[in-house]
Write a protein that binds this DNA or RNA. Structure first.
Lengths: 209, 209
DNA sequence: TTCTGTGAACGGATTCACAGCA
DNA sequence: TGCTGTGAATCCGTTCACAGAA
């Protein structure tokens, strides 16, 4: 077991987890690195090496116990507890995120939503009532928000992030198409629907007419 | 210039592009790899090396012409043309994607939407009228769809992908939390709101209580 | 002088190949 | 025999450091 785990490894673990949960749903109890690799288009050695950073989860000659490995991965990824999210920006995307059911399955709970538009504030969307951003410092504290989700327009994204950081949020998922500045102690990741498409087209452009 | 460009490089180009577009909007005409690197939290050498795979875009002693580099990156990424999208699955997420305005700015155009639910088919959502999935083969051809966006529930994702592939779509952006099988000739990428959170919590779990 | 572009050096991730266990 | 776990070897991406252009 090494001390520093490569970031690429951490990024692959959720993929493994998802595939394993699918297998569990199909009633599969045991899976080899070979089989899992085929499903995920990853080499078996890659999977074994990745898992070996965290412990010895397999049985020689058999493979991995699917249920057990799901549990281990969830623990490794910190998914064996609840994470409290706040959504900033209740436009199309924010509204979809608030109503999206997939978060709760993995222990993500939306506990607050913020917007500046008085046509939206005060209304219930998904599990929460939208509040004015002015309430953010108070609510982040009282609701124990861990992660901020930014779904405002690009032009308002930096301000939204600044407010979240100011309110004490240390992790941000950014859906706005903007490059944002945060202090080094804050973990930020950009997702956005367009970025993935943009690198995809690089590979498509020579293939299709 | 090398022949094979590392995938990581391609994944960084949209980040560069976004930062440059932001700079252009601020009226910046010239930027050094140093300055761009600070904005993006990337080393200047990384940026210079990445760009050197594609050509000589900078001016020694000066830096990069922002407008010029935006144009080059858009060309490199294949964004100097239109890309036609079809959304499969008009639930919360699909509806948000259909109504999302950010696609068109980068040349992505939603030309079709499909669902199986008769409560949704026939209705206009965003720029298109939702059609039954049975229409897919015909519509994909007539509308010249390049990229399929899957936003159905996990349980229906494999079927949605199969239908898209069958209809001739060669590139798929998957929002469903499922591991999907496609022929080797089809380019698929998973995005989904949960995956990014799951690797984030790995880094957060030891920090916050 | 300033900053790009790039071979060379370095470091880190992937793959190999096999020891070890069931 | 079958498959894991892992050092060693390999491969690949990043960083260094400097030549060269403005």
């Amino acid at each position: 077991m090494r001390l520093a785990i490569p970031e690429v490894v951490v990024l692959r673990l959720p993929e493994y987890l998802r595939a394993l949960e699918q297998l569990a749903g199909e009633g599969v109890y045991l899976v080899s690195s070979q089989e899992l690799g085929e499903k995920l288009q990853v080499t078996p050695a890659q999977i074994r090496k990745d898992l070996s950073y965290f412990g010895h989860f397999g049985k020689q000659g058999k493979g991995y116990d699917v249920k057990r490995l799901i549990g281990e991965l969830r623990r490794i990824l910190g998914l064996d507890r609840d994470w409290r999210l706040a959504v900033v920006g209740v436009g199309n995307l924010g509204r979809a995120l608030l109503r999206y059911g997939g978060f709760s399955q993995q222990g993500f709970k939306i506990v607050a939503a913020f917007d500046t538009n008085p046509k939206v504030t005060g209304k219930k969307v998904g599990p929460v009532v939208v509040q004015d951003v002015a309430e953010m410092p108070k609510v982040v504290k009282s609701e124990g928000v861990h992660i901020g989700v930014v779904s405002v327009p690009a032009s308002a994204a930096q301000e939204a992030v600044d407010r979240l950081v100011q309110a004490g949020v240390r992790a941000i998922l950014n859906y706005a198409p903007a490059t944002l500045r945060v202090p080094p102690s804050v973990y930020i990741r950009h997702v956005g629907p367009v970025s993935a498409l943009e690198s995809m087209t690089f590979y498509l452009k020579d293939v299709k007419g």
